[in-house]
Amino acid sequence: MNYALLVLSAPVSGHGARTAVRFAQRAIARGHRIERVFFLDEGVSTGSQVAVFPQDEEDRLAPWIELARQHDVELVLCISSALKRGMLDAAEADRFDRPGPTAHPAFVISGLGQLVDAAASADRLLTFGG
C-alpha cells in the first residue's frame, strides 16, 4: 500500500512525531511504500538541525534522515508553518537574510500543494498529532 503521512505535532511535545516515524519504519519493513511525509504547523520543527536534545533522550532527527536517505521518503516542511518558526533551508535563509539554514538538508521546504498532491495519489493518508 502507498501511504502519505501528515505530522502536526512537534517532537518536543506529545508523541505524534515519534509515532509517525515508527509507523513509517514498520510499514516500509512490511513492504509498503511511504511516498511523502508532510509536516504542518508545529510538526515542522521535526526538521530542525539546530535543536539540541539531552543525551539521555532518543535522537528525534536521525530516524527521519535514515528514512529519507535509505528509503527515498520525501520529507516536506510546510513553507508557511516553517518560516514563522524559524525553520529555513539554505535558499530561504539567503532570501530573508538570516544567518544560516536551520532545517536539515534531508527535508525540503515547500507549499501545501505537496500535501494535496500526496493525498491525491496515496492509498491512505494518516495524520499524526494535532
Partner: peptide, 17 residues
C-alpha cells in the same frame, strides 16, 4: 493554537488545487 489556521490554509489550498 495555530492548528485552526493550518486547517483553514489547507482547505484554501485544496480549493485552489
Amino acid at each position: 493554537s495555530s492548528l485552526a489556521r493550518a486547517g483553514i490554509d489547507l482547505a484554501l489550498a485544496m480549493g485552489a488545487f
